[in-house]
């Protein structure tokens, strides 16, 4: 053991100086990694734009888009924002969606006196493996926005019979983290 220590000491004296740059690199690595880790752990707001949160108010059109609130086990933190004339953005946080089907009425449309075309576009989601669709209660029809990680935009016809639109999410396996969905609605004049 004594001989090994002396041998190590001899090696250290002879070659130790060549390890010093690696020690400096290791010190810089620990410093940089901890700074980056802490900086990255700082949470961010997903959309930095000011949420107008104006619900159901139109500039000069008679049609009303109203967010249907209410308690739901999985579809939470809903928001409907008017982004411009006849343009609405719906966002929601889906909290740990289970395996199977989850649905909730999200938007109520009224004030329609003639048939109009509504374009629905899935703007963003990190729920990549789920089937996401919008269900029109009055027509008893589902419009797929995402399936098999493919996005689809849908043009649907709405009229005075159109009442509630449902958000439908179908998962083949449970998700253990919260997921975010953004859907844009464009009403063609």
């Amino acid at each position: 053991m004594e001989i090994d220590k002396r041998e190590l000491s001899r090696i250290n004296i002879k070659f130790g100086k060549f390890f010093d740059p690696f020690l400096i690199l290791a010190i810089l690595f620990i410093l940089t990694t901890s700074i980056l880790a802490v900086n990255n752990l700082s949470p961010r707001t997903f959309s930095k734009e000011q949420m107008a949160n104006v619900l159901g108010i139109q500039e000069d059109s008679e049609i009303n888009f109203t967010l249907i609130r209410g308690n739901h086990n999985y579809i939470t933190s809903e928001n409907l924002e008017e982004r411009g004339k006849n343009h609405f953005k719906y966002t929601t946080l889906v909290t740990k969606p289970p395996e199977g089907r989850v649905s909730k009425p999200i938007i109520q449309i009224d004030g329609l006196y003639e048939e109009k075309e509504l374009k629905i576009l899935l703007n963003y989601t990190n729920l990549n493996n789920a089937k996401i669709s919008i269900f029109d209660e009055s027509q008893d029809t589902s419009y797929i926005l995402q399936k098999d990680s493919q996005n689809y935009s849908q043009n649907i016809n709405i009229n005075q019979n159109t009442n509630n639109l449902y958000l439908v999410i179908e998962n083949v396996r449970p998700v253990f983290f919260n997921q975010y969905i953004e859907i844009n609605f464009f009403l063609n004049p």
Binding site: L36, A37, P43, F46, K48, N79, L93, N126, N178
Partner: peptide
Amino acid sequence: LDFFLETRPEQVYSLQIYFTNQTDTLLAS
């Protein structure tokens, strides 16, 4: 608070924590 995780492969650390509104972000941060 309600939050969700987002993966951004182009960044150094790909996992980022997001909140849906500024108030929650301010409180958590």
